[in-house]
C-alpha cells in the first residue's frame, strides 16, 4: 500500500508545487502525466525518498518516510523501491551480470544468480550476460535497467519516462514487461510520462 498525502515541494527560486494525493494498492498501476517542468520527476524523487518534501506524508507498506533517518531511508529504498531512469546508467567497468550483482548487494538483497538469469531471460538479455552495458543497444539498455529494478523484487517500481527514447517495438516490449512483472509479483507501478503511446495504460492516472 502506498499513501501520499498533501505533498509539497519547492525547487530553489521557483514556486511551490502541490501534488495531488495518491493511494495505490498492490498490483495497481498509475500513470502520471504532465508537461515538462510540471514536477513529474520531482514526484518520483519524493516517492523514492531521494529528496525531502516541504510538507506532507509518504507511507509505503506502513513505513512513514518522515520517521526514517537518512541512512535508514537509503536502506529502505534499496530494499523496496525499483527505480527506472529516463536515461539508463550503469557501471561501465562491470558486465551485465556484475551490474545486477552490485546493485543487489548494495541494496542489501540476497545475491542469487538464478534470479539474475531468470530476470535477464524475461527481459530478453540472456545472451548478453557477459557484455558491458555500453555495448548494448538503447532498447537493450532500457530493458537492462528494468531488470536491475526487478531483480530485488521491489514492492513498488518508479519509472521516469521509460519509453521516451524508444521506438514503437521497444516501447511495447518495455511496457509489457513492466505490466507482466507487476501482475506476477503483486508490485505497484508508477510511470511518469508524456508519451502519448502509453497514456492510457492504466485506469488510474493523474495530471500535474
Amino acid at each position: 500500500m502506498l499513501e501520499v498525502k498533501s505533498l509539497t515541494f519547492t525547487h530553489e527560486g521557483q514556486n511551490q508545487i502541490c501534488f495531488p494525493d495518491i493511494s495505490l494498492s498492490n498490483n495497481e498501476g498509475l500513470i502520471v502525466l504532465g508537461n515538462s517542468g510540471s514536477g513529474k520527476t520531482t514526484l518520483i524523487n519524493l516517492i523514492a525518498g531521494l529528496i525531502k518534501p516541504d510538507s506532507g506524508d509518504i507511507t509505503l507498506n506502513q513505513t512513514k518516510y518522515n520517521e526514517l533517518s537518512l541512512d535508514d531511508l537509503d536502506i529502505f529504498r534499496g530494499k523496496n523501491i525499483g527505480l527506472i531512469f529516463q536515461k539508463p546508467h550503469f557501471i561501465r567497468n562491470l558486465n551485465v551480470l556484475e551490474n545486477l550483482s552490485l546493485s543487489t548487494h548494495l541494496s542489501r538483497n540476497k545475491v542469487r544468480r538464478e534470479i539474475f538469469e531468470e530476470t535477464l531471460s524475461e527481459v530478453g538479455l540472456s545472451a548478453k550476460v557477459n557484455v558491458r552495458p555500453n555495448e548494448l543497444s538503447e532498447g537493450e539498455q532500457q530493458r537492462l535497467s528494468i531488470a536491475m529494478a526487478l531483480v530485488k523484487e521491489p514492492s513498488i517500481i518508479l519509472a521516469d519516462e521509460p519509453t521516451s527514447s524508444l521506438d514503437d517495438i521497444n516501447c511495447n516490449k518495455v511496457i509489457n514487461l513492466l505490466k507482466a512483472f507487476s501482475q506476477k509479483k503483486g508490485c505497484k507501478l508508477i510511470i511518469v510520462t508524456h508519451d502519448s503511446r502509453i497514456k492510457d495504460l492504466f485506469k488510474k492516472k493523474i495530471s500535474l
Binding site: 537509503d74 536502506i75 534499496g78 530494499k79 546508467h89 550503469f90 552490485l102 548494495l106 541494496s107
Partner: peptide
C-alpha cells in the same frame, strides 16, 4: 556511476 551507487543503497 557514483551517484548510481548511492541510489542503489551505498
Amino acid at each position: 556511476e557514483l551517484a548510481l551507487i548511492r541510489v542503489y543503497g551505498a
